[in-house]
Write a protein that binds this DNA or RNA. Structure first.
Lengths: 206, 206
DNA sequence: TACATATGTAAGCAACGCTAACTTTCAAGA
DNA sequence: TCTTGAAAGTTAGCGTTGCTTACATATGTA
């Protein structure tokens, strides 16, 4: 009885799911038009609701974007974790898969990806955003430390994790901007393995 | 006589320098409020001109941002070139200085830097933007090739240049977002030398 | 059933992006 | 020097947006 048929959903005064549906609508709009061109009003139209409704759930326009980004960060985190979990702890492929998941996310949701790293309005030191970012960061550190067989707070592991993080992040952005030579578009597996496997993480047991 | 005293400049019907002054005003606004929050109207106020004036020089709001980004790319290119030129061709410091110039630019103009890589509205395949980006990219390739003592189109050099580019770009972004552990904020010289000098560019003459 | 609260609507304001139509200035040729 | 067309400003105004205020309706709990 709690499951609503698609028919009877229309024209309930209380939407019941507006917050989540707005976030989804904005996610789509941002993906289509970029973060500066989406409009709250258009999202309202998509959700079938008046233009004043969002302000019962969000402080303002930026607060909606914040919500969208938080969801995206969680999605990204989950994707990275899943990718890493597909391989045993010290398999080099585990690291490559982690990086690949990052790049894949950027390519699958370029608009959101850019938005995640383009927020500067009032989110400079938002505790929730910072925590979500740190969490994603710590996945890389943990996996790297496991790979090296050292404690998670090992400085060497942290340094290498950071290098990996930088490389993958930069690669993701350069892919989106196609500011990389065309013939290098598909270096994911090969290059990640080369750089990550050989240069950055020379050998787990040395 | 062509040099205008600051006094007699005011209240000329023809502004004479509006295009450049608008770009500068928008640059400041973007740096302050971020790319989505700047308003053309506010830039007009800064330039002391009516809100319709910009449309004699730019197609629309996005076109203004495009101009700002193009200028920023040129500024960045010049900074990188200058930094590299401070060291002789095969000095490892030359590479490090190049990367450092990139990071420094991002830190000095974070709003513009984000804007440069956040444009997606209608600029997907803007030829001028693409060319400016490729030019910056090719500096890295050229310097790397020189360092390795090979031809500029050497595939090995291109690969290493791309890796350097990725790392530096990612590092820049992570610095801005402070999504890196706090104690790693000042790794510029040390880490660049470590990664770039040792891991990525093992030895120029091997 | 009554009521506090949550969640929606309607109406409206100020600001913005952009256009249309007009005005002023400049520069170049007769 | 005068004319004239293009370049570069202005004013006025349209439609949209972000957001607020006041009001309406539904929901959960006593």
């Amino acid at each position: 009885m709690t499951s609503k048929s698609l028919v009877e959903v229309k024209k309930k005064y209380h939407h019941g799911d507006l917050r989540e549906q707005l976030l989804e609508a904005v996610r789509e709009l941002v993906e289509q038009h970029g973060p500066d061109d989406f409009s709250v009003a258009e999202a309202c139209r998509l959700a079938g609701v008046s233009t004043a409704a969002p302000y019962k759930h969000f402080r303002d326009r930026h607060d909606i974007l914040r919500g969208v980004v938080l969801l995206a960060m969680e999605r990204m985190r989950a994707a990275m974790q899943t990718a890493a979990d597909a391989y045993p702890p010290r398999d080099p492929k585990r690291i490559a898969a982690l990086g690949q998941a990052y790049v894949d996310f950027a390519r699958a949701e370029p608009g959101i990806f850019r938005t995640m790293f383009g927020l500067t309005e009032g989110h400079d030191d938002d505790p929730e955003l910072t925590r979500a970012g740190d969490e994603n960061c710590s996945i890389v550190e943990r996996v790297t430390a496991e790979h090296l067989g050292v404690a998670p707070d090992n400085p060497e592991a942290k340094l290498r994790a950071y290098a990996l993080w930088c490389f993958v992040h930069g690669h993701s952005f350069l892919c989106l901007d196609s500011k990389l030579p065309r013939e290098m578009s598909k270096i994911d597996e090969g290059m990640l393995m080369l750089l990550v496997g050989n240069a950055m993480l020379p050998s787990p047991k040395e």
